[in-house]
Design a protein around this nucleic acid. Structure first.
Ligand code: MN
Ligand code: MN
Ligand code: ZN
Ligand code: ZN
Lengths: 147, 147
DNA sequence: TTGTATTTTAGAACTATTCTGACTTAAGAG
DNA sequence: CTCTTAAGTCAGAATAGTTCTAAAATACAA
């Protein structure tokens, strides 16, 4: 989450062979500066809030280009909702089904569990845990109890 | 995976307050008898293979009804692909990114890992592990080795 | 059997995403 | 710089998965 400078963002794009257009820059910069895993619609609204920056088609194009070089990934947690994430380091996700809040779960949280637990024959090379539950702000009306 | 008799299937539907129509029965029965997590399209083709059984709209309707009473669940593993599963017991999924084969991973495989590994404040009530890798039939071109 | 709320269905509508093709631009070469 | 052109942008059309509509059919309780 360390905020990247404009130069660093440009550097990353060029490093991956992407031309630096204002639209592409804006999409990536915006995605880097938020932790909420936005949808295309949300990106579109926020980017064009203070005057037009990017068309819808270009946001789709930019996300696709960024995805192809591995700077951005999709996150699929809900049916019919595609979210985008500029955190491409392996990690997991938590989703509050009360308020919809989504947050990252560090990769280390489920350390090494998977590799050892699969049946022989399956060669895992990636895995991801999705946890659904209730976040801090949405605790259900329970009186008092601990884990 | 124990094959259910027609009577048992009817019983389940009624138990959940669903009327037993030929279409709804066929959708649920088909889903119970396969382990491949089919899409709507695949269900449509297979159900109507030997003469018309159910329209597309009715398959969507049936799946929605079955889902609402908890007899069927969706499985989201790939972008833009919604799959259905009549196994509603908690379990995880493996997906071979070579052939697309999908298989269940028993719930016990990752027993108790999650509950203990989350930050305080989050109350998990469901979680799911998605493992991507290579299945038996798609082992990469390695010379010789055994399991 | 009958009555009625539910279900089925073809086709229309809707929605997220991709495509099209004319125009614009980033950036390397000279 | 200026030129050149492959790459990018964008409005609108097209596509695809899903839901809606409303008329006809039907499950099932009485
Ligand atoms: Mn994330
Ligand atoms: Mn399954
Ligand atoms: Zn919440
Ligand atoms: Zn395979």
């Amino acid at each position: 989450m360390t905020t990247l400078s404009a130069n660093e963002i440009v550097g990353r794009l060029k490093l991956h062979g992407l031309r630096v257009t204002p639209q592409r820059f804006a999409v990536y910069e915006n995605l880097l500066n938020r932790i909420d895993h936005p949808t295309v619609e949300q990106l579109l609204v926020e980017l064009n809030q203070a005057g037009p920056v990017s068309s819808q088609a270009t946001i789709y194009n930019s996300l696709q280009a960024l995805r192809e070089v591995g700077l951005v990934r999709q996150v699929l947690l809900e049916e019919g909702v595609v979210r985008y994430d500029a955190n491409v380091d392996p990690h997991h996700h938590f989703r509050c089904h009360s308020c919809g809040h989504i947050e990252d779960i560090p990769w280390e949280a489920f350390h090494e569990v998977v590799q050892s637990s699969l049946r022989p024959g399956l060669r895992p090379d990636r895995y991801e845990v999705t946890v659904m539950g209730t976040c801090d702000r949405c605790q259900p009306p329970e009186p008092q109890d601990a884990v």
